[in-house]
Nucleic acid binder design. Structure first.
Length: 274
DNA sequence: CATTACCTGCAA
DNA sequence: TTGCAGGTAATG
């Protein structure tokens, strides 16, 4: 379920627990489909003995940078969690991958829906992952002009565009609804119909929503947790997401829910321009 | 382009 | 029992 703010929070909370440790063993892997590349046996050989240098994020991928040029890229998809546990912790039901670390700690990857994915990438693989995604909206180099260029000439709806990771990295279903409400733009508005002033508002709204969610350590609707197993608090600050039929906080009109691109969208039919 | 598939659990 | 869930790849 994580979007950019949740993945960022996971990466930040894992860093102090992982950096400097060595991967001692692949203790458990009971859902092999989870490891996309390389083949499981090669994956096991390659990660054992590697030292963890850094933990970061690109789009919705957690990037665990190892020595010898390797990066462990992990996508949590809908229900994945990465948490660190002591030597005696029991890997319960949905834990599918356990890395044993030097010092006795263990990294658990649990995922009840089994959508999560792991890749061990060399420099070229990492570059390909990077190239497959649009710009990072929180990068200071991401300007209004960049967003204008992404919107320009595209006839798809704002909802679809903002969810497309190839065009802009990190937005997901919650934060698209939130940002569009702040920018007063209807999720069904075609991207190319957004005027320059509105592009500025959308750019600011996207960044505001993501910054705020990171400050609140992500949104925990049902089961999102950070690297310590802790919930976020941003769900207490939703403006429209999951608030169908509640009054719009600007104009009082009941918030509507509409399925667009197979995803629930929440918006104010009066003050978000279509 | 829109649908469907991938999985499991939970609430209506 | 059905529909829904924070995501994305595969398929018509």
């Amino acid at each position: 379920m994580p979007e950019l703010p949740e993945v960022e929070t996971v990466a930040r909370s894992l860093a102090p627990q992982l950096v400097g440790r060595q991967i001692a063993a692949l203790e458990q892997l009971d859902w092999e489909r989870m490891v996309e590349t390389p083949a499981v046996e090669r994956f096991r050989e390659l990660i054992i003995g590697r030292q963890i240098r850094r933990v970061g994020r690109r789009a919705k991928w957690v990037l665990i940078e190892l020595d010898a040029g390797w990066t462990l890229a992990i996508h949590l998809r809908m229900s994945g969690h990465l948490t660190v546990h002591g030597p005696d912790a029991i890997a319960r039901r949905h834990v599918h991958l356990v890395l044993q670390l030097s010092g006795g700690e263990r990294l658990f990857f649990d995922d009840e829906r089994k959508f999560g994915r792991v890749r061990l990438l060399d420099a070229a693989g990492l570059a390909a992952l990077d190239a497959a995604h649009g710009p990072e909206p929180l990068d200071e180099r991401f300007g209004v002009t960049d967003l204008a260029n992404i919107l320009s000439g595209r006839r798809i709806t704002l909802k679809q565009l903002l969810l497309d990771q190839r065009l802009l990295a990190g937005m997901g279903n919650i934060y698209v609804s939130e940002a569009l409400w702040i920018a007063r733009l209807h999720p069904l508005l075609p991207a190319c119909a957004v005027n320059p002033q509105e592009v500025g508002a959308l750019h600011a709204a996207i960044r505001q929503v993501l910054h705020q969610a990171i400050a609140h350590e992500g949104s925990s609707l049902r089961n999102y947790r950070d690297g310590y197993g802790k919930r976020g608090q941003n769900q207490e600050h939703f403006l429209v997401y999951d608030r169908a039929n509640q009054p719009c906080q600007r104009c009082g009109t009941p918030i509507e829910r509409l399925v667009i691109a197979q995803r629930s969208s929440f918006f104010c039919p009066l003050c978000q321009r279509l």
